Simulated scan of single mutants.
Amino acid sequence: MTRPAFPPLTDDSWPEAARGLRDGFAGKLNVYRVMAHHPALLNAWAPLRAHVVVDNVLGKQFSEVVILRTGVHLGSSYEWNHHVSRGRACGMSDARIASIKGAPDEMEPDDATLARAVDELFTDKRLTPETQTALVALVGREGVFDVIATVGFYSTLGYILNSCDTPLDANVAAELEAQPLAAT
């Protein structure tokens, strides 16, 4: 059975019901151009995205650690590759980024705390008391919620990306072809 195709929508095929998002974040990435097949969902997504992606208390690098580790769990090459680019853009080294695919014991201590939290959410569907305590010490009480919300947010994106075979954005593909992630 052939599954329905949900290619990234072009500007010409962009739905009127989500027109206001096209020239902002949604028009810049293939994942949101795919999501535009459901304008109501994309419109509802925008405020949560603003918090999880921009206004969270984790900071850019810790946020990228959580997103990259989530991408690993989901087997989402789009998410992984896109956030390799974003991780580099916020000052993360290739070695640090690559370590996020491995065992937490081989990561920087703060990254290991974040990775363990992501791992627990995927395997146990909850954080252990020890991990919650470590997260509060690292990112504060609100940060615990931002870690959980980031995993949930990017899990939903990963399910969309994987289900729709969303192609990597051309600029990210070109960057990674010119500068592949260095092996550790």
Rank of each mutant, 00 (worst) to 15 (best):
L181G: 01
K125N: 08
T70Y: 06
A149S: 11
L48T: 14
P167L: 11
L29D: 02
I148S: 00
T166M: 08
S76K: 02
V118P: 09
S13F: 04
T70I: 08
K101M: 12
L168K: 08
V52E: 02
M35R: 12
H51Y: 14
L41K: 00
A149W: 05
V34K: 07
E142M: 09
P4A: 13
E64N: 08
P15V: 12
A95N: 09
A149G: 08
F122A: 07
A44R: 03
S163G: 15
P180K: 09
P39C: 07
V151S: 09
M1Y: 11
M1G: 15
Q61I: 00
P15D: 09
D23W: 00
D124G: 00
A26H: 02
A50K: 14
T156I: 14
A50F: 04
S155F: 06
V52Y: 04
V139R: 07
V172L: 03
R33P: 08
D105V: 13
G158N: 00
T70W: 08
E16Q: 14
D111V: 12
G20L: 11
L9E: 10
L9P: 09
D11V: 08
A174W: 02
A36K: 10
R19I: 10
V72N: 05
V65D: 04
M35F: 13
Q179Y: 09
S63T: 07
D105F: 02
L41I: 14
G87S: 11
C90Q: 04
L161Y: 04
W14I: 06
D169Q: 04
V136L: 00
D94C: 03
S76T: 05
S63W: 14
V54M: 03
M35G: 13
P109Q: 06
H73P: 04
P109T: 09
A50R: 15
D110G: 09
P47D: 02
G102E: 05
A89G: 05
S155T: 15
V54Y: 02
T2D: 13
R69V: 03
A174C: 03
G152K: 02
M92H: 09
